[in-house]
């Protein structure tokens, strides 16, 4: 505890850079995966390709990716960009599938009635399909957010600053307190991100919080679809 308080500035600084490395890929992955998933919906052949490409990419070990990427991107090995790109790749690989599930979860009757009212395809996608897929989409995002937080620590092996630094440093110095601070810090970050996502989801789905239960009202709990386990 004393060590923690004494090193608070460093803990905070590393937490900050840890968060950036986790959040930016998450945001980027949404921007990339949502259009990809919609493409996959519209074109079955392309969809099959996108999904298998995603699974394939996800099997590349993270450390290998961190090492290879600088060669491909022409970045320095210690560059943040490597982590960001690598984690974005993983996140997209995962998120395309959950976005596809999310879009498929939208009631076809609702989709059709929106079409019948005269929404154009893109209009309908943005105004109807996307908002209605938020619950399932976010259950995917929450898994990825946790996975990102833990994957970021791997970058510490290469010397990229994050809470993972406390693992490597603590191990070298044989100083368990530091390792514990690293673990607890990572956990706290993961929980924090999860909380933010849950709040964001509630904000984006006011209709699921409607208090007065009508006879036909579905339960307000979003479907937490089982996600494939994530190994860091």
């Amino acid at each position: 505890m004393q060590w923690f308080l004494a090193n608070l500035p460093q803990v905070l600084a590393l937490s900050g850079s840890h968060l950036v490395q986790a959040v930016v890929p998450l945001a980027l992955s949404v921007v990339i995966a949502v259009p990809l998933a919609q493409l996959a919906r519209l074109n079955k052949g392309l969809g099959a390709f996108i999904l298998s490409a995603g699974s394939l990419l996800y099997t590349v070990p993270s450390l290998a990716l961190f090492v290879i990427l600088p060669g491909i991107l022409g970045t320095k090995i210690l560059d943040f960009a490597n982590i960001i790109v690598a984690l974005t790749i993983y996140a997209v690989a995962l998120l395309v599938r959950s976005t596809l599930d999310a879009l498929n979860s939208v009631d076809d009757g609702v989709r059709q009635s929106a079409t019948a009212m005269g929404f154009r395809p893109l209009q309908r996608f943005l105004a109807v399909d996307l908002p209605l897929s938020v619950p399932v989409l976010f259950s995917g995002l929450r898994v990825i957010s946790v996975s990102n937080i833990s994957l970021v620590t791997v970058g510490a092996l290469l010397g990229i600053p994050s809470l993972g630094f406390f693992f490597t440093d603590g191990l070298q110095r044989n100083f368990p307190t530091e390792i514990v601070v690293g673990i607890v810090g990572t956990l706290v970050l993961a929980l924090l991100m999860d909380l933010v996502l849950v709040l964001l989801q509630r904000l984006l789905t006011p209709w699921l919080r409607t208090a007065t239960p009508a006879p036909t009202a579905p339960t307000a709990t979003p479907t937490t679809a089982a996600q494939p386990g994530v190994a860091a």
């Binding site: 009757g109 059709q112 009635s113 019948a116 009212m117 005269g118 109807v128 908002p131 209605l132 209709w207």
Partner: peptide, 21 residues
């Protein structure tokens, strides 16, 4: 198509209301 549809009301069995609005 979208213009044509806006000139016709459409009601179906399950009302098809937008649940998020």
């Amino acid at each position: 198509a979208h213009q044509l549809r806006r000139s016709m009301g459409y009601v179906m069995q399950s009302a098809g209301l937008l649940p998020h609005r």
